[in-house]
Amino acid sequence: MNGINRVLLATDASAASDNAAHVARKIASLESADLHVVLAHVLRGAAGEVDQALLNDDRNRLATLQADIGDRVTVALEYGYSAARTIVSYARSHLIDLIAIGTHGRGSFARFFVGSVAAEVLRTAHTPVIVAGPEAQPATSGFGCVLAAVDFSDASKEVLRYAATIAYRCNARLVAVHVIDNTRVPGYAQVQAAQNRDDQALAELNSFVKAADLQTEADTHIKVGAVHDQIVATGREYNAELICTGSSGQGALGYRLLGSVADRVVRTSDAPVLVHRHADAHKVLDA
């Protein structure tokens, strides 16, 4: 992956954004990157009216956040009719390499908040996006373990390389997992056939990892089951503090986020999830 020079924390300065802030600051520190903090103030009505009380509140929360983070940060209060579009526009105009954004928990998040800020940012951003829910427990320094979910597509090779670079930077364990979706494989319950398939998949995964020419060693694992369930379960099994997955490719990690593997991993993971967009997805969205 190219170096991360600018990290954007998209925040509403609430407690729900704390873990996203933690991850953004951690990666910015690891990469010696500039940290940008943006709070999007949503305009109301056709005339773009500003609620002065809410605006003052946003300014106070942003000032508090800036004081907490320190001097090495660019803080911006941006205005727009859509928080997500305002965030993505800022990311593009300021050449942001990575966006971090928080969620408000499993209650509202269980619907994957169709039309919500984080979902729209995931769908439209031209950079990788880290989503951190309030349940995430990020490490105090670096990441102890980074998990990369791969499906043997070119897109997931990018995911693997991105995860490997982060793992290398903080001397973390890298785990690469490929999930055999037994909900789509007829007769997979036959034990011998299952074993043969597992062995073949592990050999393919090892070849895939070797061909990626990573900066660090990767532990490789094959899991069987529903793809998103097994990715999240593997993250818990290895105490992964960051899960990396894709939103494009020819395999299980399909381009469309809503209803996809990436969507479900984001919804159910205890750890922050980095969703890496493949270049082909950008072309589709821009067409």
Rank of each mutant, 00 (worst) to 15 (best):
A118F: 14
G142M: 01
R161V: 11
D51E: 06
N196A: 13
G249P: 08
V131L: 00
I101D: 01
A189C: 09
I180Y: 05
S14V: 02
A47D: 12
V42E: 09
R197A: 14
I166E: 01
L39F: 10
R197I: 10
S82A: 13
E204Y: 12
A63G: 14
A167G: 04
I243L: 09
D57Y: 11
A149K: 03
L253Q: 00
L174S: 00
L274G: 12
V227P: 13
A125H: 07
V75M: 15
A189K: 10
V114Q: 14
D34I: 06
A167S: 04
R72Y: 05
G187R: 02
A176L: 07
D213I: 06
A163R: 11
V50C: 03
V273N: 05
A136N: 03
I87C: 00
L77Q: 12
G115C: 09
G105Q: 13
V232Y: 12
H104T: 08
V191Q: 02
S269C: 02
I101N: 04
D219K: 02
D97R: 11
Y168A: 13
H276R: 10
A46N: 07
A271L: 01
N19F: 02
H36I: 00
G187L: 05
R173Y: 00
E158W: 12
A203F: 06
D280R: 14
K157F: 09
L62G: 11
A164S: 09
G133Q: 08
I99Y: 05
D68F: 14
I87L: 07
T124Q: 07
Y188R: 09
I180V: 03
D286Q: 07
R72D: 12
G3F: 09
E31R: 04
Q66Y: 10
G70W: 05
K157S: 15
R44K: 01
A76T: 15
D71G: 00
A100K: 07
H22G: 01
V75F: 08
F109E: 04
T183K: 00
N56F: 03
V209T: 08
S116N: 14
I99T: 07
V191Y: 07
S269V: 08
A67D: 13
V131Q: 12
E204P: 08
R184K: 14
E78L: 08
H282A: 12
V191S: 11
F152I: 15
S32T: 10
E135K: 08
L202A: 10
